[in-house]
Simulated assay, not measured.
Amino acid sequence: MKGVLLVNLGSPDSTKVEDVKKYLDEFLMDERVIDVPWILRAFIVKGIILRTRPKKSAEAYRKIWWDEGSPLIVLSRRLREKVEELVSVPVALAMRYGNPSLEAGLKELYDKGVTEVLLIPLYPQFAMATTETILVLAEKLRKKLFPDMRFTTLPAFYNHPDYIRVLSVSIQETLQNKDWEHLLFSYHGVPERHIRKSDITKSHCKIDGQCCNTPSPAHQFCYRHQCYETTKQVAAYLGLKEGMYSTSFQSRLGKDPWLQPFTDKTVAGLAENGTKKMAIVTPAFVSDCLETLEEIGMEAREDFLEKGGDEFHVVPCINDRDDWVKVLARWMDEWAKEEELLATN
């Protein structure tokens, strides 16, 4: 029997400091998020970050928390429920960190008799700190608890025509009655070393302004290339001209080199250089979350207005849009039919 597991990042169980601390501990102690030896990672996370950050993060979560709970969890559940209505196979939801856990999601499918699972990491672009860590943990759980299961993984869909269309239409609909001069595509940042570690050629990714535009097998797992390609294809779909849009990266941590340009500096720079009306979209996120609602919708907006801007328009994530639901359902059905054909041959 076939089934689908949607996997998103995760969220604390509540805005209580102890719940936020527990979530951050699990998240930041992941060796693919802070990729340094365990001793050093434990010193950084448990000895430094978890002493102060949980309280600050809890305050940020309180600003965006909904009556139903964490926006990311609520939106992910809505997506799962809508998709399951359109497909003939069971669909479960899991989070890489927090609840519902990846183990719980797999068990839900297992208890329904599912032995063939389509894993769908809800990240358009591949990164070792997102897609890769999901697949590694899923395989670990499969070997330990669900040895009869077989996994298929939906590839990164950063350039899939269906995704590009849904994202582009969402931008059009949000901005159709608004004046704007510049559209910023803001992606979650990662350390530059993550790009080099994901380079399967071990030589292509130099982050020099040229490598992302030079065809290479490395692009299959290059987060930076995939972000810029998403921007490029959406800009083409919308007919945007050079100068009307740009790409940046948000949410850096620590002092190591991270992907640039930085979103906060880009937003401030646009305002300081005379842009009065800007729009911003966050295509690395399928579901609205702390990074989109608070960091962009509140902090970036405030910075832009303080630096002289007049209007700051935020494009919501594609969340549980009906056109996105239909796309996901079609991908699931295509996989299920393909598996059936393979089984009969």
Rank of each mutant, 00 (worst) to 15 (best):
I44T: 03
S57M: 11
R62P: 00
T133E: 00
K140A: 11
S76E: 05
L122H: 02
L141C: 06
Y110M: 15
K46N: 09
P54Q: 00
L145P: 04
L50P: 02
E103I: 01
I134Q: 03
P124Q: 15
I164G: 13
D111T: 09
P161H: 09
S76T: 15
D67T: 08
S170E: 07
P121Q: 15
P147R: 05
K55W: 09
K178A: 14
T115S: 08
Q172K: 12
G113N: 14
K82L: 14
R62T: 06
L75I: 13
R41L: 05
K56D: 09
T52K: 12
L109Q: 11
I73Q: 02
V114C: 13
P147W: 06
L118W: 10
R80L: 05
K46S: 01
T133W: 00
A42N: 11
R96P: 00
F126H: 10
L137G: 00
L119F: 07
P71R: 04
R53A: 05
R150K: 15
D148W: 06
E108M: 14
E132M: 11
E68D: 14
T115F: 14
V114F: 12
P100Y: 01
L79W: 04
S88T: 08
E85M: 07
V91G: 01
A129H: 02
V91T: 07
K178H: 15
D162G: 11
V74K: 02
P124N: 12
L167M: 04
D179I: 09
E81G: 12
V117W: 01
R62V: 03
L141D: 07
V114T: 13
P54T: 01
E85N: 11
L154Y: 10
L40E: 08
K107R: 15
R80M: 13
L72K: 01
K112G: 10
L75P: 04
T130I: 05
T153K: 09
I48D: 03
A127S: 09
P161C: 10
L75S: 08
Q125F: 07
K55N: 04
E68Y: 08
R51E: 05
K178P: 08
A92W: 04
E139K: 14
L40R: 14
A42W: 12
L167S: 08
K63L: 07
L141H: 10
D67V: 07
T174D: 10
K178I: 14
F146Q: 05
T52R: 10
L122M: 12
S88F: 09
K144G: 04
V114P: 00
K144N: 08
K82A: 14
E108V: 13
L50G: 02
F126D: 00
N99T: 03
P121T: 03
F126E: 03
V117S: 02
I164Y: 11
R96G: 01
T115Y: 13
P71E: 04
L79I: 07
G69K: 02
V91F: 12
K140C: 06
L86H: 09
L137W: 14
R96L: 00
I134E: 00
